[in-house]
Design a protein around this nucleic acid. Structure first.
Lengths: 226, 226
DNA sequence: TTCATAGTTTGATATTAATCGAACTATTCT
DNA sequence: AGAATAGTTCGATTAATATCAAACTATGAA
């Protein structure tokens, strides 16, 4: 069967522990260098190099040279979405579930998914936008309403400029921890960027976990309920 | 990292060509015996047997004994959704795309996704339900409106009984061919069952392709636009 | 009971691919 | 230019696993 070979190719890329760890690290959204990824995966740089070459060749990862560094990142939002989905399946129906560690609660609460907010907080945020009519989840992925455009423009996000980019403004992504959606796309990324810059959340070192500062939590709640 | 090992486990299950072909075959929704799957994957029965054991052990596939046969099926709708997502990534960003064969157009048009309708037809159907207010895509996956309940009850689907089952009535699933959603869940399955029984579509032999009969196409269009 | 079919288990083989040290290229810093 | 750092390529080794033939178990049919 043709369909089989296609998914096998991707599966085998994801199926190696070293590569899987690299991909998981890249879910954090920031581009990482080859050596950082080697460390993350627990392998030497030569091995990391071959793995990265395979990931790039397979289209899951893209690389950008910058001086003597090479920054690796997930190729695409859709790759991030796929990895989230796989994590979701692993979380629900793994036979011998990895026992939920202390970090798991925080991960479920708020985390990075590529470059936007995921977890309870991300799901709550999208829900609030939908409730207030800013985002409509009808047909084709998701759409920003006129009211939403105004709201986010007031908030300081340049929707106009964003809508001229190739990347879609609104996209949604299935959350593995909760089985709901959160907001991705250009808008999702811009909002998270704002949250980081305003100091609402801080990224935990070497992890995808996002921690709200006390003041940030209040601001965020206001942002959702005003 | 913990997250990595989880996804690696699933990845490696999907990553073997023989297993991937089996999974692809099981996307057709009908449970298949070990020998049928061996044939599908192009391996002997002992090999198939070990592969199937791994898939079951990994939680991706479940098995039901029936006399001297063992019927294998995907464990869960979420597994089917994951496979669709992987296919989607393979389709969009594969470096050397497998050239689209003659079957691909038909696949994109209408196909089985586990036990419900996918492809252009599936996407159009969900879109129509949303437009007419039968299904609301707000928060948590998707919800059936009162009007929708009446509509489907008139259509001959016992929503009342369905809502008491464990399986959610409405769920949506990302379509790999079109990048939109189609309807899954108990309702999605029931509608397809109706379509099959009423002879609107016929399943192509040994494939996921669904072909509309001329009359069936008319009925279906009516169903969407009445 | 006997035969046939469905499927698994065992054991041996072969292939694949992950791994690392060492050598090599390229870029930056002094 | 020379030294240091980032990263890749090469070659050899090792570990994992897919594969099948043959033997075995279980169910159904004659």
């Amino acid at each position: 069967m043709k369909a089989g070979t296609d998914i096998a190719q991707i599966g085998s890329l994801v199926g190696d522990p070293a590569r899987a760890n690299m991909l998981a690290a890249l879910m954090g959204g920031t581009a990482l260098t080859a050596s950082e990824l080697a460390l993350e995966a627990g392998v030497t740089s030569p091995t990391a190099s071959t793995h990265l070459a395979k990931l790039v060749d397979g289209g899951l990862v893209r690389v950008k040279r910058q001086g003597r560094h090479r920054y690796y990142a997930l190729a695409d939002e859709s790759v991030a979405g796929m990895l989230e989905t796989i994590m979701g399946v692993a979380a629900t129906l793994g036979p011998k579930r990895v026992l939920p560690g202390p970090g798991d609660k925080a991960l479920r609460e708020a985390r990075l998914c590529y470059d936007h907010l995921a977890g309870e907080a991300g799901v709550a945020m999208l829900e609030s936008f939908v409730d207030r009519g800013f985002v409509r989840l009808d047909r084709e992925t998701a759409a920003l309403s006129p009211a939403g455009s105004r709201f986010f423009a007031d908030f300081g996000i340049d929707i106009e400029a964003m809508s001229h980019k190739r990347r879609p403004v609104c996209r949604i992504c299935l959350d593995w921890s909760v089985r709901r959606w959160h907001l991705a796309g250009g808008l999702g990324a811009a909002i998270l960027e704002h949250m980081m810059r305003a100091g609402w959340v801080r990224r935990e070192k070497d992890s995808r976990i996002l921690r709200f500062t006390p003041a940030g939590r209040r601001e965020f709640d206001l942002f959702l309920h005003q």
